[in-house]
Design a protein around this nucleic acid. Structure first.
Lengths: 152, 152
DNA sequence: GAAATTAATTGGACTCGTACAACTACTTCT
DNA sequence: AGAAGTAGTTGTACGAGTCCAATTAATTTC
């Protein structure tokens, strides 16, 4: 197999770009705290809520996607349920499993979080029209490539 | 003052791009675990070490930059010192404060972390030449704009 | 020179998330 | 039907970070 050696200029550009990307997203990252304060729960729970709001999930799959174990997922979901943000319903096809879905209040909270996290930083809005368009196109390409999780 | 209403098309593009940016950096984010495993310490400590390696700091400033308090910073630095990665020396101009700096071993460890974290994802390397160049240029613009902390 | 400030440290209580072990209810395999 | 496996739950132990109070040594202020 011809694994031709990596062109040095490309690598340099890619590394520089990657460094910038990390700084942009992780640098002024303090939106996490903002969301945590706004919703009054840990960021981990916000993450769980957002996932559930996207589409109902079995508890087991939720645990997998959150990269945590089933016991803790039970606890987190129970907490969200006590807050009236999610509810668990029995899965008709397999009565062992429970499907977790958002309530109206939960959807509202998730959208609130999404609004805070999804607000683009000022520097992005200040970008020249054509640069913004190019960035939009290229990042869509990058984000589209590797799908988040295995399709289930 | 004429705060003209935000052009809707721009905002849409910016929000979409911001979403993609977050997904690119945070989505395949599991390099954190890789670094943690490679260096045998928490990501927080890695972050502290990388900061110290960049330039010697007074403990107080280190605490500020890590967004944590002085007591915990003392503990973390003590741990890094026990590992032989950093050392504290008295500040000649103010003998209350201590300057924390890396040892040779600490620098090597920090560079190892940097190498892991700084490796661009495959999708980035697979980008067409001109797109990569454009991304490099635009992200540099974005990252350069807002400096992280007040210069101190 | 005495009083108020500041840097670092020590120590405590507390929250959050991870990792296991054990149990119940349900399902699937043979 | 019985055995084995799976989903969710309960409970326990632990590490990591945050928060707050108090102490010591050095500095600055009056």
């Amino acid at each position: 197999m011809t694994t031709h050696s990596p062109p040095p200029a490309r690598n340099a550009a890619a590394e520089r770009a990657w460094g910038s990307l990390r700084q942009i997203v992780l640098g002024g990252n303090e939106r996490r705290k903002e969301v945590v304060e706004a919703l009054g729960m840990s960021f981990f729970r916000v993450k769980a809520l957002r996932r559930i709001a996207r589409e109902p999930v079995a508890l087991r799959d939720l645990a997998d996607e959150l990269l945590t174990d089933r016991p803790y997922t039970t606890l987190v979901v129970a907490d969200l349920a006590e807050r009236g943000l999610v509810e668990r319903t029995a899965n008709p096809v397999d009565r062992r499993s429970k499907i977790v879905s958002v309530t109206a209040a939960g959807r509202a909270a998730a959208e609130r979080a999404e609004r805070i996290l999804g607000a683009p930083p000022p520097a992005l809005l200040a970008l020249p029209e054509e640069d913004l368009a190019a960035l939009d196109r290229i990042t869509a390409l990058l984000a589209g490539g590797p799908p988040h999780g295995p399709g289930r």
